[in-house]
Every structure is written in C-alpha cells, then in structure tokens.
Amino acid sequence: MDSIQDSLDMVVTAISGGIICPLVQTVDGETYSLMRVPKNKYPPGTRLRVRGHWAEASTCQQGQSIMVMQIEETRD
C-alpha cells in the first residue's frame, strides 16, 4: 500500500521523445516517463500537473517512471 510520502504532485512540461510512454521534464531538468498516459496525448511544451506515485516497475523502458493517477493541463 502506498503511503503519503510516496505520493507525487508536480508541475512538469511535456517533451519530445519517449519509447513507449510520454516524457516530461521538471523545472530542475529532471526527466520522467508517465505510465497510464497515451504517448502522443500532450504535445511538447504543454504544462501539466501530475499526481501519482513512483512506479516500482515500468514498461516505459526509459528512466524513472511515474504511475499517473491524475493529470491535467495547467498554466502554473
């Protein structure tokens, strides 16, 4: 079971790339893949608020993955 410490709530920017899953980047330059989100749903440059948790295992084949529970476009 996930704890409160495992939950994520972050604003990121969609970037190009991604083998299976879409990629996003934080303002600090960290790149993550998003599980449970269609690869081409958000074009590069789209700002997103992502809520979820770190994936223990991933089919994304690229870096650290976030298991997305909620995602929405934002202007933050």
Score class of each variant (00 low, 15 high):
54 W>G: 11
60 C>D: 01
50 V>R: 07
57 A>S: 14
36 R>S: 14
19 I>P: 00
36 R>H: 15
53 H>S: 13
71 I>Y: 07
56 E>R: 09
76 D>I: 03
8 L>F: 02
9 D>A: 11
3 S>K: 14
39 K>N: 10
58 S>T: 12
12 V>Q: 03
42 Y>V: 08
54 W>E: 10
53 H>E: 12
63 G>T: 07
65 S>F: 01
21 C>A: 03
60 C>N: 02
72 E>N: 13
17 G>E: 07
11 V>P: 04
24 V>N: 03
55 A>C: 04
31 T>I: 15
52 G>F: 04
30 E>R: 11
53 H>R: 14
31 T>L: 02
39 K>L: 14
17 G>T: 06
26 T>A: 11
29 G>P: 06
43 P>V: 11
6 D>K: 10
11 V>L: 02
68 V>T: 15
1 M>I: 09
70 Q>I: 08
12 V>N: 01
18 G>R: 01
52 G>D: 08
44 P>I: 00
18 G>I: 04
15 I>G: 07
22 P>K: 00
42 Y>N: 12
8 L>Q: 10
42 Y>Q: 08
33 S>L: 00
40 N>A: 09
70 Q>K: 15
62 Q>T: 06
42 Y>C: 12
34 L>M: 03
13 T>P: 00
56 E>D: 13
68 V>P: 13
25 Q>F: 02
18 G>Y: 02
47 R>E: 08
48 L>S: 05
26 T>K: 08
32 Y>H: 12
44 P>Q: 00
23 L>I: 00
15 I>A: 07
37 V>E: 11
45 G>Q: 01
8 L>Y: 04
12 V>L: 06
33 S>T: 11
8 L>R: 05
65 S>R: 00
76 D>A: 12
72 E>S: 14
49 R>E: 12
23 L>F: 01
3 S>R: 14
28 D>P: 05
11 V>M: 03
59 T>P: 03
73 E>N: 06
46 T>C: 11
66 I>M: 07
64 Q>R: 14
20 I>L: 08
